[in-house]
Structure formats: C-alpha cells, structure tokens
Design a protein around this nucleic acid. Sequence first.
DNA 1: ATCAGGATTGGCT
DNA 2: GCCAATCCTGATT
Length: 196
Amino acid sequence: MILPPSFYERDTVTVAKDLLGCLLVHREETTTMGWIVEVEAYLRGDPAAHSYRGETKRNSVMFGPPGHAYVYLIYGLHTCVNIVTGSEGAGEAVLIRALEPAIGLDLIQERRGMNDPVSLASGPGKLTQALDITMDLNGTSLYNGPLQVGSPDSLPGRRPEGFPGEIVQTTRIGITKAADLPLRFYLKGSRYVSRR
DNA sequence: ATCAGGATTGGCT
DNA sequence: GCCAATCCTGATT
C-alpha cells in the first residue's frame, strides 16, 4: 500500500518516526526495495536544514508539496534522499539514512560491489546507490512516481528487524550546525542502521 | 569570477 | 583515527 499525501502532511517528527519500518521502493526495469530503519528530521528554523537560509534553486523541492523526494548531491560523489514533510512551504524534510534490503538483493549487491547485507544500504549515500536513486528523481512524487513509499505491511509475512518495536532517538550524524538536536531516529535492535 | 565547504564513503595507518 | 575523492552550491569579491 502506497502511503497517501495526507501521511506526509503532518508534524515532521511524527512522520519521521512513522516512516521507520516502511518500504522505500524504486520501480525500474527491476524493482528494488528496502525497509527504512533510520531517519533524521530537518525542521523549519533548523540551522542544519538546507532550507534554513530560504528557498534557492537547489532546495526548492523542500518548499514544495509534502510527499515528494528531495534529492541532492553531496561531496560531488553521492546523493542523499529526503522526503518532504509538514505543511507546504515549511521547508521541512526527513533524510533517509539507512535501509534493510528487502527485494532485489542481486541487483543491489551488484550496484554496491559487495554482498555483506548489513553494509549494502547502511548510510544515506549507500542506500541511494543500492536503489539507484539519482538526481533525476529530485522533485518526483512518492505516491505517483517511480520512487514510492509503502506501509510496513506491503510484504505480507515479512518485517524489518526490530519492527514493530522501540524507536531510539539520538543526535544527528555528520553535521556541524545544530549538532545537539535529538532528531535522529532508528529501530532499536536493527543491525542495518549506519554506524559511526 | 572566485572560492570554501559539504546531511559521505572507503581505504589506509 | 585520518584523509582523499570530486563537483555543485551559495556566499563573497
């Protein structure tokens, strides 16, 4: 079941926590999917958010309607994928930081050049490579496009490790501004979260 | 026009 | 733990 726009148009921290256990799906020639096991919230008035200094060409998707993908290039090498949340115009989003691979293992392993399951998508740059999430998906709808988010029961009889269960809340990783805000969330007990 | 730096990763010490 | 890779963006001159 693809999540409807109304799912995203709520408090960003609530959406971030509700995204844990959901499926990120990329439908191409071959479909690949992974369960979301780690996220970070970026809020209005948050110095670490790309939207902090107002709308620019790069971050304009963050100010658009919720339920769309904000994809950006980082360090000239990797892409990161966010889900726009909250009210349109708020500039809020949830960064997907780690997935537990679910479908399309062969292709994911080929793209990543490795086969250790816990390292295939345990980082924001790793998971975009695993699911082939490139800049051309920036701005696409997550309920009416090739990149989708499904509810946790989308694969009958299967669940990500640690779900349903406790959600752990910590400070965000890899940022210098507002590094003290506790806006990172992950599934307790999952071996697929990013380390560091 | 120029330039510092980044929501990272993988390899090496 | 340290650092290079790699290039686009936003801020500054």
